[in-house]
Design a protein around this nucleic acid. Sequence first.
DNA 1: AATCTAAGCGGACCTTGGTCCGGTTGTTCG
DNA 2: CGAACAACCGGACCAAGGTCCGCTTAGATT
Lengths: 219, 219
Amino acid sequence: MTGPATPPSTPSSAASGTPVDFTSGPPDGAPQLRADAARNRSRLLDAASQLLTEQGPERLTMDAVACAAGVGKGTVFRRFGDRSGLLLALLDHREHEFQGAFLGGPAPLGPGAPAVDRLHAFGPALIRHESDHHELILASRKDPLRPYAAPPYRLRHTHVAMLLREAGSGPDPEYLAHTLLGATDTALVHHLTKAGGRTFEQLEANWHDLVSRFTGPGA
Amino acid sequence: MTGPATPPSTPSSAASGTPVDFTSGPPDGAPQLRADAARNRSRLLDAASQLLTEQGPERLTMDAVACAAGVGKGTVFRRFGDRSGLLLALLDHREHEFQGAFLGGPAPLGPGAPAVDRLHAFGPALIRHESDHHELILASRKDPLRPYAAPPYRLRHTHVAMLLREAGSGPDPEYLAHTLLGATDTALVHHLTKAGGRTFEQLEANWHDLVSRFTGPGA
DNA sequence: AATCTAAGCGGACCTTGGTCCGGTTGTTCG
DNA sequence: CGAACAACCGGACCAAGGTCCGCTTAGATT
């Protein structure tokens, strides 16, 4: 440790935008984190979060984050693998919120409503979520194959496929789920709203149209 | 010009895989190319093509291409903008072949057949085309937003949207076209066939299913 | 408390995409 | 043909992601 150490207590809370507590790392995945490692992890996430809200994703270099956290560069890469990993980790908290909403939140997005209704509710929520974090999401997309293998996409896919199956969508709900998710891809939505002149309302209407076609008389 | 100049005649023909003549640059887009610039351009494409078939996309560094072409690095960037640009230029020839097939080739892919039939024919052709060049296509995807703004995607989108409109697909054929193209995205197809255990036949069947849903009774 | 070990650390180092600018060379026009 | 100009060339240079390895230290064991 070289840089000026921050006070040992409450090392968290992001800069301005939206304070998120990074002190509690995910106890799953990684078996356990040594005390200093956990501390550095949250320092790094704090620093990254701050740099992000202050200067945007393009200025978020690994050196800058390491330096701002008072940590060596190697530490950043060891903890997060690569730049995308750091960005994704930054997104993780929001991602869990969204997951909680459609897995266990109030109906019709959460359980309790008919599958078709949940499906209709899912699109707008997803579009909203991705749009809220499009900067981070787009910045983390260096490898076009990676998203499909990552937990967020897999979970959404499983969820949508289950609802489609439950709603009786036809022979291959898994593929239809990919199609539905593709239709709300962050990059596409961003393109359509920024360069294509579409509004969110139109995109939502299109989602509903798609869901209708996929759950209507076509089984 | 520093490196050992290749014989002045017939500077083209790729290494092994599939010889493509790069001597004729696109007379559109760029107003005109000075003689030496055109020569260097085709040398670079030749060198890149050779490196590609010999060692795969990941070994295709800009330095290596410049060196192999006997040209300075700056020349590569001036001509192609960035790495993706070079990769896309490498793909351009094949892209034009594919475009010719669905714009002016034999029916049912080309004109002459009913819109629905052309739509059904388009999917398999597209999947085949993208799969054939998935290495290049995936390697060129660094910026997730770029594909939507690039000519190949725009042309496909216009084409599919037109066919959908012609087939009477409903209120927003443009969006349905995006959905259809998203369902055959190179990365998705690659993911499904490599990690998802799908076969091309299944993907084609799914395409036909989607087209049916989009052109069936839903206007 | 002393010891031992594996996890962690940091920053020098490498690679590679991308920029810049002084010198060179086609091309055109008188 | 010769001058003038714009396009072009090349490689030194920079930034940023990613790797490596010798040193440090948390935390378990006795």
